[in-house]
Amino acid sequence: MPLDRIALVTGANKGVGKQVASELVANGLTVIVGSRDLTRGREAAADIGGGATALQLDVTDARSIATAAAWIRERFGRLDVLVNNAGISHTQADFTMDDYAAMSRASTASIEGVRAIWDVNVFGTLAVYQAMLPLLRESSDARIVNVSSGLGSLTETSDPNYPYRSTFGPGYPASKTALNAMALAMSIELEGTPIKVNVVSPAFTATALNDFQGTESVEDGSREVVRVALLGADGPTGTFTLWNGEVIPW
């Protein structure tokens, strides 16, 4: 791969996104830190250091996405790596995991809340893909990594013995199932091209998504995202893997 690789990480001002951006910079890439709030994006880019540049990007705002794509084209002329990391798990300001479980069932989930989650996790990811694909096609060997969750696995959730089966609901978990479907559609569209599309679950990582109650560190959760983003020409496409490299069934 060329050494002057250009990467965009959405939702990169904190959590897994920021860690992935930092590690990609450490691997010699120029990383665009996508952030809905530009001030926070600039703070994250400053923390990461040389090689990181902040860019305002709200994945739910078509104008913001188009402006970001135009900026990348003018500045770099192409995109080599797209990490679709931006995501939300809820719309409440304060909550406990017990609260989250109670308000996330099919019978109790707010329709407005579900729409808001899907707008970011599903439609936002698809919108960014569509806007950035022309730039990715300018690369000789682009990579797309969609940050998902093992909770989105229908195969796992269908198993009565799956330990997280009871947490599946129409909000965050189902949005990740839909995200996986979008990623599969991307990989099918790009079959026969040098662009690889893969899905990674960072596992139950301690971030704002779960009120920092996760059991894995952001360093562990980011490891597989970075590995897949840096896949060589002989690497796979259309895979769904966990933070430790384990394959997750769809």
Rank of each mutant, 00 (worst) to 15 (best):
Met103Leu: 10
Gln130Lys: 15
Ala208Glu: 15
Thr60Trp: 00
Val16Arg: 03
Asp47Ser: 13
Ser158His: 08
Leu179Asn: 10
Ile48Tyr: 11
Ile48Phe: 11
Val81Thr: 13
Asn13His: 10
Ile65Phe: 09
Val197Ala: 13
Ala12Leu: 07
Arg73Tyr: 04
Ala233Arg: 14
Pro236Trp: 02
Met132Cys: 13
Thr96Leu: 00
Glu74Phe: 04
Gly192Ile: 01
Gly221Lys: 01
Ser217Lys: 09
Leu82Ser: 07
Ser110His: 08
Met103Val: 13
Asp141Asn: 15
Val122Asn: 01
Phe123Cys: 03
Leu24Gly: 11
Pro170Ala: 05
Val33Lys: 03
Gly150Phe: 06
Asn161Gln: 13
Leu184Met: 11
Leu133Asp: 12
Thr237Tyr: 04
Gly124Asp: 02
Leu126His: 14
Trp250Ser: 11
Ala203Tyr: 09
Val20Phe: 03
Val147Cys: 07
Lys14Leu: 06
Arg137His: 09
Gln56Glu: 12
Arg40Lys: 15
Glu189Thr: 09
Trp71Gly: 00
Lys176Trp: 05
Glu43Tyr: 03
Gly11Ala: 08
Thr155Lys: 11
Asp80Arg: 01
Pro194Tyr: 05
Ala44Trp: 06
Glu224Arg: 14
Thr10Pro: 03
Val33Met: 07
Arg165Ile: 06
Asp37Ile: 05
Arg63Lys: 13
Ile195Cys: 05
Leu57Gly: 09
Asn161Glu: 15
Ala131Leu: 03
Gly113Arg: 06
